[in-house]
Design a binder for these strands. Structure first.
Lengths: 335, 335
DNA sequence: CTGTTAGCGCGTTCAA
DNA sequence: TTGAACGCGCTAACAG
């Protein structure tokens, strides 16, 4: 590859002049600049981002760590991050922690070693506080995406899970459901905990006893499944709400195994849900996460933080939309 | 951040010794090495990947350009690439071309400037040959993923689209379908062309006249939709096969608009398809791309090419699986 | 308006 | 077994 010296020689100028026309960082006479430009195309010169970054100690790149590259919601977030990143002239370095704390630690290390200008941790595992604290010195700005930890001093982007679940629940209660089974999953995950909070909050608001309902929490899929099956076997539950796509898969499987149809036998709603949901039956009532926009917002927060390293951390919550579909319609109580 | 000099000073050795214990590149006496190791933990030193890369002219990173980060198949491929990359100690730099030739060119430029050790172009637009040819000098190994261009001198990874479509079609013919509508889409895309080839090949093999069937090609969604609607309106077609997920969406929408049910009125099958397809009706007969494995294979090819820069390019085709489901079952001709 | 030069942090000869 | 010193390609003082 041609280097700046080659260009300089060919244009009969110094390397600093070449650098300056490249970066537009000081005035260069018309003719001189043209000579440089010609030399550049003639030699096929391309700026070496590595050397440049080393010298400026800025890589113009950001790191994204996601906890589960398998989920579709990830794709949307990553897509949003990538989109916004190029918009700001930033390159995206991607890593996947696979919900594994150790891998996450390694991923962050790698990205830090690569000197990314900023870090976005999307749905990071426990987001082990020690992890980032341990890198006290000169650690770049960090944005937490999707899972919000109010106690941590970072900029964060999430959705208004609590509010949305509250609305969803109130509507189900209006429809006459008195025994709802909520598959809440691992409530150590902020997103899921917020959703469950929204549920209990709605019950309080409507004056319904929590004891009438089935709240199914836990980390283990098998346990969750059998807990749900027990709830369904009681014959009480007339509605099931799943807190995420994996939990919806689990719940729908359990429903099918129990021979229950949606929505004839039981109503169903889920967070996140499935792509192209309206093409298939049952058409599921779904809370759509603005995943793409969340990715964009994270980058936005990041570049602002880059400009203003100080100032207290901000938390941005994006509004979710509830797509009401057939799965919550056939209930007698419906208008 | 602490640098090698800090470590060296603290361990009372030279920087070269530090470097050598770091990389295990020459013998260092037990005690000396221990002093260095201690100094490293004491200072919290971390190797600067930038400087290291500049010096070794190897970044231990690879670039991945995808044409549509929105599609789920992308997520799976990227996931596979990321997985295999870390396995080989490589970092993944991601870019999205959004099916735009210009953006693709820019993305490749950026990655090249970043000196990635290799490049994977996943489902790249037209893969404009000039694009990569233009970077004749010292361009890193390039792997083409998903879309195979037999005429291009690159290592490539794809699926056996032709073979799979042939099998699928023969089975439909066996079931008694005499008028199949194939939504083939943009046949400039190798993947789609291969699938269409498989269709005509099966007809030839079975001795069926191509003229009896409806082959719907084109770039414009609206045109495709109206062509399909016309084919359906004729009342002839008893089966519809879609060449990709977007085409399946288009086809299913058109079927619904025409008031046709799957599979009662018309059989349906698609390539790629939808996640969790077995939880919903209609359960679609689907050709599952081994997307994750394709990503892994691409990295595999890449590291081998890194080891052996010369040698003729290889093309790897991974086997696809047909998941037969309800959407092709209800036809009278079925066994 | 332009040129000279000192590093950014590391790997790697060459000498000892 | 260890150290000194050069340079990867670039930006940014500083000098003219």
């Amino acid at each position: 590859m041609a280097t700046m010296v080659d260009v300089a020689r060919r244009a009969k100028v110094s390397v600093s002049t070449v650098s300056h026309v490249l970066n537009g960082t000081r005035n260069v006479e018309r003719e001189t600049r043209q000579r440089v430009l010609d030399a550049i195309t003639a030699t096929g010169y391309r700026q070496d981002a590595l050397a440049r970054a080393l010298r400026r100690s800025r890589t113009d790149s950001i790191g994204l760590v996601v906890s589960d590259a398998g989920e579709p919601a990830f794709a949307a977030m990553a897509h949003g991050v990538e989109h916004a990143a190029v918009e700001h002239g930033l390159t995206l370095v991607l890593a996947n922690s696979a919900e594994d704390v150790e891998r996450e630690r390694k991923a962050v290390q790698t990205l830090l070693n690569r000197r990314v200008d900023g870090l976005i941790l999307a749905r990071a595992a426990e987001s082990d506080p020690g992890l980032v604290d341990s890198l006290e010195d000169e650690k770049p700005p960090i944005i937490l995406l999707d899972r919000i930890f109010p106690s941590l001093p970072f900029d964060q982007v999430g959705a208004d899970n609590r509010e949305t679940m509250r609305t969803l629940t109130l509507r189900l209660l209006e429809q006459g459901h008195r025994h709802v089974a909520v598959v809440a999953g691992d409530t150590r995950v902020p997103t899921l905990r917020e959703r469950l909070d929204g549920f209990t909050s709605a019950l309080l608001e409507a004056g319904h006893p929590l004891g009438d309902h089935h709240v199914i929490t836990g980390t283990d899929d098998d346990e969750l499944r059998s807990a749900l099956q027990a709830a369904l076997a009681s014959g009480e539950a007339t509605a099931v709400v799943a807190g995420s796509t994996p939990l919806a898969v689990l719940a729908l499987t359990a429903l099918a195994a129990a021979g229950l149809r949606v929505p004839e036998d039981v109503a169903f709603a889920t967070f996140d849900g499935f792509d192209n949901s309206d093409l298939f039956r049952p058409q599921l009532t779904t809370v759509r996460q603005p995943a793409f926009d969340m990715g964009v917002a994270a980058v936005q927060l990041l570049v602002e933080r880059l400009r203003t390293p100080d100032g207290s951390p901000r938390t941005v919550r994006l509004r979710q939309r509830i797509d009401w579909r057939e799965s919550t319609e056939a209930w007698p109580g419906t208008a």
